[in-house]
Simulated scan of single mutants.
Amino acid sequence: MSADEHAALPIPDYDHLPVASLAHRVRSLDTAGLDALIEYEEEHGAREPVLTVLRARAEQLAAGAQPSGGDPTAPQPEHAPPADHQGPSSVPGPPQNPPSHGDPTNPSQPRG
């Protein structure tokens, strides 16, 4: 399968999804979409847990199940978005007082 054929798979980044996520995403596919994934998996990874999930869903569809309304191309929670900051925080922390070792001007030192 060429890069174009890989890009045409019904689930983006299919090869990198955990099996548990894949089991949820395939519920929105029709028979043609599942057949494409089964064929791809048999020719490439042949991962038995993945094939088991795909074939089980294909059997459910053959028995009359309907694809769910989900979107298999939706953002993937398995992949965290990139960090939104650049370096240390610029928000100052609480004021720091020096240790109260006999400094009468230190506000944290007890007065007597």
Rank of each mutant, 00 (worst) to 15 (best):
G64Q: 13
H101G: 14
H85A: 08
D84Y: 00
E42A: 12
G87P: 04
G70E: 12
G64Y: 04
S108A: 15
N97G: 00
D84R: 15
P110L: 13
A83I: 13
G70Q: 10
P88N: 04
H101Y: 07
L61W: 01
Y14N: 01
S100R: 13
V53H: 00
D71K: 06
I38Y: 02
L9A: 05
R57P: 03
A7R: 15
T73Y: 01
Y14D: 05
L29D: 01
P107L: 12
E48H: 04
D84K: 10
A36T: 10
P94T: 12
D13T: 06
P94D: 12
R27G: 09
P94Y: 07
H85L: 06
D4Y: 01
T73N: 04
H24M: 14
N106Q: 08
L61K: 03
H24N: 09
P49V: 07
P81W: 07
G64H: 08
V50I: 13
Y40L: 05
D30L: 03
L29T: 08
D4K: 08
H85T: 14
Q76A: 07
E78C: 07
D30S: 11
A80T: 10
P72V: 08
D4G: 15
H79W: 12
L54S: 02
E5L: 14
S90F: 02
D4T: 09
G64S: 08
Q66M: 11
A80P: 11
A62T: 13
D4N: 10
S28P: 06
H6F: 12
D103V: 10
L61F: 02
G93N: 10
T73F: 01
S68F: 00
R25Q: 08
H16K: 11
Q109R: 15
P104H: 11
A8T: 05
V26T: 11
T73H: 01
D15Y: 03
P110N: 11
S108C: 09
M1L: 12
H16P: 00
G93M: 05
T73D: 11
T31L: 12
A56K: 09
V91A: 10
P75T: 12
T73Q: 11
L17A: 08
P98M: 13
Q66I: 05
E5S: 09
L34I: 14
Y14C: 04
S68M: 05
S90G: 13
P72G: 08
Q96C: 10
P81E: 14
D71L: 05
I11D: 02
P99Y: 05
S2R: 10
L9Y: 06
A56C: 01
A80N: 07
A58C: 00
P95E: 14
H6P: 00
E59Y: 04
Q96D: 08
E43L: 14
P49G: 06
P95N: 07
L9M: 04
P49N: 06
N106S: 10
H79G: 00
P49C: 04
S100A: 15
E41S: 07
D35N: 15
P104V: 13
P95W: 11
A74F: 02
S21E: 15
L51M: 07
R111L: 11
L51T: 03
E59K: 09
